[in-house]
Design a protein around this nucleic acid. Structure first.
Length: 556
DNA sequence: TTAGGGTTAG
């Protein structure tokens, strides 16, 4: 760009929406050199372009240097909102109001979208108050945004009140409230409004079909799909997704094959359909088919594919996926990198999981949790614990899932002292209130190691009602350590809480058999028969083997 | 301003 760039040239460059930030730097420099840095119209285009390529910090600096920003406030609010910086968008709106500046009809839809995105109801309500106070109640754009904000913040009744109060409604307002009812499962209300509304567009039809498909009324969804006046790719995709959720892979594929213009979303839905319905091989096959088209692979389809590989459990496929990830340039997407760690953990290859973990440049709590849990299930408590130390050193705040992993690791290896220490550390370090699974680990750990009273006391001290699995762990410990008296009282409790679980009967009966207390064993066996527990399907292998020990006939 | 995709720790 030459130094004597005209104003027209600068507009031209900005209207082309250049993607490279170095180009934008040059344009910005040129604007300054030309003394146009207070030209709001030009700066507005620069700000939007900067936002589009993720340079919101620079956009903000430029904005702050403009003496009379006027309409630029809205540009900034819009830029933040459109590129997902919802918090910044709301904060800027607040700053604007703090300076007693008045938002315009374009500011509201964007800042309200940010509130919706964050489910920031309280902020949304304050902005709604501004809408009323500043006289935008008859603006259909603004009112529809208010309505939609309430829908997304799960305040469907308030949204309906706003809708009813609107003096002017358009197809978007009607669609927004119908989509709101669909989202919350009020399908009758949605259908009533759908039939009442004067004009419908394809978005309205799609919203209703999606609602019906989401909530399982796939046949009615199909009826609307077949009767809609015009379909777009979204309509087809919604219907395929509906069949997928209903487990109807054949119909999903039938529609997918009939689709003319398949874009990446449709491919993702079909691939996920195979994954969610236990056909990961088909998912991979379909992805290969997609690669033969001109469709661009994106992060979302890559995550669906990782899911397929995780389910498939083939290391060759995993390696191929890793290759795809680096070829596509997704190597810095933390969601993808975490999913890869999990993929190897689930496939049982802890070394490869750790290699993938090491490659994550900026690890987050999920990265650490995936790996710690991987080690825990793999029985490698030392690695799990040292990773925990690394996590603390890296200033990553552990959460309740981290401690579930740590306590599981301790329980697997019988590390009682460490388990006790981490159980207490949980509160001290992270102010984390122990949940059911933490208590379950501790009871299992203490009980197996023979600290039955301590485990029992821990259960008694629980502020939440212990689940059957907690008592089950203690019953198992009683069996290991031959504490019949406590086992009897726990078993009685379990017979009431989960009378259908054959394992509890089997443990108690086996304990009687070990002591040659035949009558007592028979009583348990009779109770089990009376309740038809033997025939309960879905027993775990541990339970089944216990039943065989007990001499009970079980049909598998 | 309204409609469609995925995922990770338990």
């Amino acid at each position: 760009m030459c130094r004597q760039t005209s104003l027209g040239d600068l507009y031209g460059y900005l209207l082309k929406r250049p993607k490279s930030s170095s180009q934008l730097d040059q344009i910005h420099a040129q604007i300054i050199v030309s003394g146009l840095h207070q030209d709001n119209s030009l700066i507005m285009k620069l700000i939007i372009s900067l936002m589009a390529c993720g340079k919101q910090m620079i956009a903000s600096l430029i904005f702050n240097q403009v003496e009379y920003p006027n309409v630029l406030w809205t540009s900034m609010i819009r830029g933040y909102s459109c590129y997902g910086h919802f918090r910044e968008s709301i904060l800027l709106y607040a700053r604007m109001r703090h300076q007693h500046l008045c938002p315009n009809n374009f500011s509201f839809p964007f800042v309200l979208k940010s509130c919706a995105g964050l489910k920031a109801l309280s902020e949304g309500e304050q902005i709604h108050a501004d809408v009323v106070k500043l006289g935008f109640v008859s603006d259909v754009f603004v009112q529809t945004s208010v309505l939609d904000m309430y829908v997304k913040c799960s305040r469907i009744e308030t949204a309906k009140q706003v809708f009813d109060g609107m003096t002017v409604k358009n197809v978007v307002s009607w669609t927004a409230i119908i989509a709101g009812y669909c989202r919350h499962g009020f399908l009758d209300m949605a259908q009533e409004l759908f039939h009442d509304m004067p004009v419908r567009n394809v978005v309205t039809w799609n919203a209703l079909i999606d609602g019906l498909a989401q909530f399982g009324d796939i046949e009615r969804a199909r009826w609307y799909f077949d009767h809609m006046p015009e379909k777009n790719t979204v309509s087809w995709t919604i219907m395929i997704g509906g069949y997928s959720r209903a487990g109807d892979v054949a119909n999903a594929r039938l529609l997918f094959d009939k689709m003319i213009d398949k874009e990446v979303v449709a491919w993702t839905v079909m691939i996920s359909c195979y994954v969610q319905n236990g056909k990961p091989g088909e998912a991979i096959k379909l992805f290969h088919e997609m690669l033969r088209t001109n469709i661009m692979v994106d992060e979302v389809i890559m995550l669906a594919l990782i899911s397929a590989a995780t389910q498939l459990g083939s290391l060759n496929v995993c390696a191929w996926i890793e290759n795809c990830i680096s070829e596509c340039g997704f190597g810095s997407d933390i969601r993808i990198l975490n999913a890869v760690v999990n993929m190897y953990v689930q496939c049982g290859n802890i070394e490869k999981a750790f290699n993938a973990f090491k490659k994550i440049p900026k690890k987050d709590v999920i990265s650490y949790n995936s790996m710690i849990t991987g080690y825990a299930h793999h029985g490698d408590a030392n690695c799990a614990l040292s990773l925990f130390s690394m996590m603390i050193d890296a200033k990553i705040q552990p959460n309740s899932i981290t401690f579930t992993g740590i306590l599981t690791a301790c329980a697997h290896r019988g590390l009682v002292d460490e388990g006790r220490r981490y159980f207490h550390l949980m509160r001290d370090l992270g102010s984390i209130v122990p949940k059911m699974e933490h208590y379950a680990c501790m009871v299992d750990l203490l009980g197996r190691a023979g600290f039955i009273d301590e485990a029992h006391n821990l259960i008694s001290s629980m502020p939440i009602r212990p689940e059957a699995s907690i008592w089950g762990a203690l019953l198992g410990a009683c069996k290991i350590h031959g504490n019949l008296e406590l086992a009897e009282s726990i078993a009685q409790k379990l017979f009431e809480i989960e009378p259908e679980n054959p394992g509890n009967y089997a443990i108690l009966a086996n304990m009687y058999v070990e002591r040659k207390m035949w009558d007592a064993a028979t009583r348990v066996r009779m109770m089990m028969k009376r309740r038809g527990v033997c025939k309960t399907p879905g027993s775990s292998w541990a339970e089944v083997s216990q039943l065989f020990d007990f001499g009970c006939q079980i049909r598998i």
